[in-house]
Design a protein around this nucleic acid. Structure first.
Length: 596
RNA sequence: GGUCCCGUAGCUCAGUUGGAUAGAGCAACAGCCUUCUAAGCUGUGGGUCGCGCGUUCGAGUCGCGCCGGGAUCACCA
């Protein structure tokens, strides 16, 4: 990195010019603002206390020192307290040549085999996935890919929340009113069928509660004593007691839900290294609760329920086990964390879970700490923001959710409609078109979601379809397709041009240097994205690069009407750009088309 | 009420560890296909970075206090 050289020689310069040893930390090197001439800018203000001279003079003196000691430096210019450095084209051309020959450009070559666990998706098996889950899945998948590009051993785990009172509700409704309906008989995806009964349960329960309230019960009593609620709770106890009949139905309905999820995952293009099932792990949590009781860090109330007192940590008392002995959510999370730690000894356990559960993870870590699990510190909750609709957040039970499968259908149709309107379907087979629509539709959706900073809430308006122009996924795909098209027209593959590439006579256009400089940043962007676990950085970068290329392409002939060496260079520059677009899109889980 | 997150153009979002006159896209308007894909490119208009005080040579960025919005504090997950 040339920045490191600038830093190093600046330190040297301060020693020679002013006889001061300065700390590399205070040397600020940034990109030069586009309105000025230069590639990098050294901000001299923080250095004045060492030079004891005015900003102008200090910058001049440092500039001259750099000019005679940094061979890559072409010239410099001082404006106010800013020392703008212009780097020689040769440096950029050399970088270009090295990068283009590095087939793994941008990714970390030093591999770290210590596992980093990324838990994401983690659906409940009582209802289908919605747009919020899509955000979760895309973030999880992308973050794992970004970590891999940073040389980490990312392990993707999906924890299936397949037990609990919510599952029992769907089961109960199906047992009572299902009439033996199956996904086949109903011609419905399994997860949607199970979800249908979850909603039905809720409706019937509400009716019961209303009835009870009319009879004079308080709202709270009515909710607690509604027969359906009691039945669901009994079902949960039977389940925990391994009741054969209950387990059979549970197995059946979970199977439907999981089969449905599987199809959604495949279509969305996400995958996992491992599936954990809450039903397998929740008992471990109970064991740890006992350990805590024995150690005296938890306590039991008269009704038999188990609690932990976190008031000393600024939180509240938290329930760990119900009075009837059944587990709650956090019970199994304690067991799961312990198992994962023991099984993998990971450097980090990243949980991709919505920001509504910040408190939950706070509690989890504090509990593990109380149990003496010092590794609680490796738990990192990536709390992403909600996807909101114009009328507020999505609510499954109120039917204000955007279903994941519907969403993908819609994106596919929009892609189809747009492509047809633009008249770009000639020379495609119908199979190729299907594939193209899927790539474009999903690309638009994924980019739309991932370009937003994960921790921020985001708005989705179903009335306005996701855009295909401007700062969008299709824009990026289009740029890639354009580049591929160039090679079809040029008649040879990039490697053929690379073989005969001669850069000796090339002088860079501003727009070419601009693209090379953006490519130059790529490894650092990948690194930043890995450190901050933010696919948004990759998305914004990919857009920036695409935009820059489109600008270039608009008024620069790539291989027509230019001499051979220039054409070779421009072709290879286009190829390199395309490679970075494809790679960065890949980190987002976005595929690119050969044509569109 | 306690804790946490957010507030940047009409809308959706960027804005590196504090640096130069705060950027994109959409929407609006005006242009550009006889040359490699116009899902593109160029231009115009649009801002009290919620408000105030402070730290600093310098604050959208850091600190404190307000205002507004959201999340959470369940024998829900």
């Amino acid at each position: 990195m040339i920045e490191d050289r600038i830093t190093q020689i600046t330190i040297e310069g301060f020693k020679n010019l002013y006889n001061h040893d300065i700390n590399p930390g205070i040397i600020q090197i940034g990109k030069t603002n586009p309105e000025f001439r230069g590639d990098f800018t050294v901000v001299v203000f923080p250095l004045l206390r060492f030079s004891k001279k005015s900003p102008q003079i200090t910058a001049e003196e440092l500039g001259n020192y750099l000019l005679s000691n940094l061979t890559e430096l072409e010239s410099f210019e001082v404006i106010k307290g800013f020392l703008n450095l212009l780097i020689k084209d040769k440096y950029w051309i050399d970088f270009f040549m090295t990068g283009v020959n590095d087939i793994e450009f941008g990714i970390q070559k030093i591999k770290d085999t210590t596992p980093v666990i990324v838990e994401y998706s983690s659906p409940n098996t009582n209802k289908p996935l919605h747009l919020g889950h899509i955000r979760n899945n895309l973030l999880g998948y992308s973050i794992a890919e970004i970590l891999k590009a940073n040389g980490k051993n990312a392990i993707k785990i999906n924890l299936i929340n397949d037990r609990g009172i919510h599952i029992c509700k769907s089961m109960l409704a199906w047992m009572k009113w299902g009439g033996g309906e199956t996904p086949v008989s109903a011609d419905m995806k399994g997860d949607h069928l199970v979800g249908k009964y979850y909603v039905l349960f809720d409706q019937k329960l509400k009716e019961e509660i209303t009835g009870l309230v009319e009879k004079g019960y308080s709202k709270e009593d009515a909710s607690n004593q509604a027969p359906l609620m009691k039945e669901a709770q009994e079902l949960l106890q039977k389940w925990e007691n391994d009741d054969n009949e209950v387990r059979k139905i549970w197995h059946l309905m979970n199977g439907w839900a999981l089969e449905g999820f599987d199809r959604t995952y495949k279509r969305l293009g996400v995958d996992f290294n491992k599936f954990d099932y809450e039903s397998d792990l929740y008992l471990l949590g109970k064991k740890l609760i006992n350990e805590g009781l024995n150690k005296g860090v938890f306590f039991k109330k008269d009704d038999g329920s188990v609690w932990v007192d976190l008031t000393g940590d600024g939180l509240d008392e938290k329930l760990l086990l119900r009075g009837d002995g059944t587990s709650v959510y956090i019970t199994q999370d304690i067991g799961t964390a312990e198992t994962r730690y023991n099984d993998h000894k990971p450097a980090k356990m990243i949980y991709i879970v919505g920001n509504e559960q910040i408190y939950h993870f706070d509690v989890l870590k504090k509990i593990l700490k109380k149990l003496g699990r010092v590794w609680y510190e490796i738990i990192f909750h990536l709390s992403y923001g909600m996807v909101e609709l114009p009328q507020g957040r999505m609510k499954s039970r109120e039917g204000t959710v955007v279903d994941a499968d519907d969403m993908m259908d819609e994106m596919f149709l929009t892609a189809k409609k747009t492509t047809e309107e633009l008249g770009k379907i000639e020379n495609f087979t119908s199979g190729e078109l299907e594939e193209l629509y899927a790539i474009i539709g999903l690309g638009a959706l994924k980019y739309y979601i991932l370009k937003v900073d994960p921790k921020k809430n985001m708005l989705f308006n179903p009335e306005e379809s996701i855009d295909f122009n401007g700062n969008t996924g299709p824009f990026i795909l289009y740029t890639y397709a354009r580049i591929r098209s160039i090679f079809r027209k040029a008649g040879q593959e990039p490697e053929d041009f690379l073989k005969i590439l001669d850069l000796n006579k090339i002088s860079l256009l501003e727009s070419e240097k601009e693209i090379i400089k953006i490519i130059y940043q790529y490894p650092q962007v990948v690194k930043n994205a890995g450190e901050s676990l933010s696919p948004a950085l990759i998305a914004n970068y990919c857009y920036e690069l695409s935009k820059s290329f489109n600008h270039y392409y608009q008024d620069t002939p790539i291989f027509k009407r230019v001499d051979g060496d220039t054409a070779n260079f421009r072709l290879i520059l286009s190829w390199f750009t395309g490679r970075i677009i494809k790679h960065s899109a890949g980190l987002l889980g976005i595929q690119v088309p050969e044509r569109m």
